[in-house]
């Protein structure tokens, strides 16, 4: 769970573990207490029920503690989010276009591709536009997504820290082939990336498979 292709993956998994961990403790506590009461105060045991109308102190405790807990969850969640929104100015900008049902990536030198090639250990900034309806660019391995909204430019930042090939999925329903709108991020070393970027032909698509042998 804690090694990932980007440090953000670890951040998200940590936040997840934190929230899920507390949740499991609460869930087990609630369930165990409930089951214990059902057995302990079962009618067959024949004791008289006691009408307890409430307890202000208890009421305060079980508002105060959860309030504290959820505020920490909020805080960690926000910090993890802020991490991907602070994109340095020297990030590599890739213009991204989503359409029914394909992705297109344009680089500053005019190179175009249906697969997202990036150098490792460099901040990437995707400037995303849609040619038709809403889509959403989702890279599960990096734990990130951002919708691609018609008529709007949304951006998404990330940094790949391990060379490899990672799925890109479309996560906003966009019609017939929504579930087939997959492509990939191919993270290469800076040298390999430069070679790819400057290789002719500049405007034809490079199939993932041709390069994948090299990366693996």
């Amino acid at each position: 769970m804690f090694s990932g292709p980007s440090s953000h993956t670890q951040t998200v998994d940590m936040v997840m573990l934190y929230i899920v961990g507390i949740s499991v403790i609460l869930l087990l506590g609630i369930t165990a207490t409930m089951i214990y009461f059902v057995f302990k105060y079962h009618r067959n045991k024949g004791h008289k029920p006691v009408d307890i109308h409430g307890n202000v102190l208890l009421e305060i405790i079980w508002i105060a503690i959860p309030t504290f807990l959820v505020l920490t969850m909020f805080y960690f969640g926000y910090m993890g989010f802020a991490e991907i929104r602070n994109i340095p100015d020297d990030a590599l900008v890739v213009k991204t276009t989503a359409r029914m049902w394909a992705w297109q990536f344009d680089y500053a030198n005019g190179k175009q591709s249906d697969t997202l090639f990036v150098p490792v250990n460099k901040h990437i900034k995707l400037e995303m536009e849609s040619a038709d309806v809403n889509h959403s660019l989702y890279i599960p391995a990096f734990r990130i997504k951002e919708d691609v909204i018609a008529g709007k430019v949304n951006y998404l930042g990330f940094k790949a820290e391990e060379a490899g090939i990672y799925d890109i999925a479309c996560a906003e329903f966009c019609g017939l082939k929504h579930s087939m709108m997959y492509t990939a991020v191919v993270a290469l070393s800076q040298d390999e990336f430069d070679t790819w970027l400057n290789a002719a032909p500049k405007d034809t698509n490079t199939a993932v498979t041709t390069d994948s042998t090299k990366v693996e």
């Binding site: 998200v12 949740s23 969640g77 989010f81």
Partner: peptide
């Protein structure tokens, strides 16, 4: 039991870092 799971996982998707991953 079931509703508690529903509610507690709501915290997971209420938090920004995790929701960005789990949304949709």
């Amino acid at each position: 039991f079931l509703f508690s799971i529903g509610g507690l996982t709501g915290l997971v998707v209420g938090s920004l870092a995790t929701d960005i991953h789990l949304h949709d």
